[in-house]
Amino acid sequence: MFAGEKIFIRPFTPRDVEARLQLQLENRHFFEMYSMARNSDYYTVEGQRKLIEEYDEKCKKDLEYNFGIFTTADKKLIGTISLFQVVRGSLQSAFIGYFIDKENNGKGYATEAIKLIVEFAFTNLHLHRIEAGVMPHNIGSIRVLEKSGFHKEGIAMKNVKINGKWEDHQVLAIINPND
C-alpha cells in the first residue's frame, strides 16, 4: 500500500471484486468515452474475479501492476491506476493508465494517485520512463499529468481504437530523475 494525503493505492485482491464491479457499472459510459469498450463478461462478478487473478499473474511476471485508488477517510474504491506494458532491458519503461469515478473527478485524487504510482515505479521497480497517452480533448487528464511532472512529447496519430474510431493521443512522459 502507498498512501497520500487523501487517498491510498494498493493492488487489487479477491475481496475487491464487488467494489470493482460496482465502480465499473456506475461509470461504464463515462470510462468508455476514453477507453475501449468492454465485453459483457467484464461487467460480471466472475469477470472481475478473473481480471484480478490475471492482474496478480501479470504482477508476478513483472509485466503489469494494477492498483485500486481508495479514499483515506472511508476506504472507498474510487478509481483504478496501472502500469502496463512494462519493458525491461535497455528501455526500463511502462505506460500508465487511470480512471477516477465520475463523481470524484476534479478533487485532486488522480494527481495524488499518479504521484504515488510514479514513486513506486521509480523507487521499487527502478523504471527509467513512464509514458501516458491521452485524447487531446481530455484537457483535465492532460492537466493532471502535467501537475504530476509529466511533459508533452507530441501527438500519436490515430493511435488507439475507441468506440470503433481511431483516436489521436497526446503523448506525455516522465523520466526518473535519479537516472
Rank of each mutant, 00 (worst) to 15 (best):
A3N: 13
K6D: 09
I7H: 04
F8P: 06
I9D: 00
R10E: 10
F12G: 03
R15W: 04
D16N: 08
E18V: 12
E18P: 01
R20P: 01
R20A: 10
Q24W: 04
Q24A: 12
H29G: 11
F30C: 08
F30E: 10
F31C: 02
E32F: 05
E32D: 12
A37D: 11
S40I: 10
R49T: 03
D56A: 14
E57S: 13
K61P: 05
D62V: 05
D62Q: 13
L63I: 05
N66E: 12
N66V: 07
F67H: 05
I69C: 07
T71F: 07
A73I: 02
A73M: 10
A73R: 11
I81D: 09
S82H: 05
L83G: 03
F84Q: 11
V86S: 05
L91V: 12
S93R: 08
A94F: 04
F95C: 14
G97P: 05
G97D: 01
I100V: 12
D101E: 00
D101T: 01
K102F: 08
E103D: 15
N104H: 15
N105K: 14
K107N: 12
A113N: 02
I114F: 00
K115S: 08
I117F: 01
E119L: 07
F122R: 04
F122I: 01
T123E: 14
N124T: 13
L127K: 06
H128G: 04
R129D: 04
I130M: 08
G133I: 02
M135W: 05
M135C: 07
H137I: 01
H137V: 10
I139A: 13
G140D: 14
R143D: 13
K147S: 06
S148I: 02
I155W: 03
N159C: 11
N159W: 10
V160W: 10
K161R: 12
I162T: 08
N163C: 08
H169T: 07
I175V: 13
I175D: 02
N176I: 02
P177G: 09
D179S: 14
D179I: 13
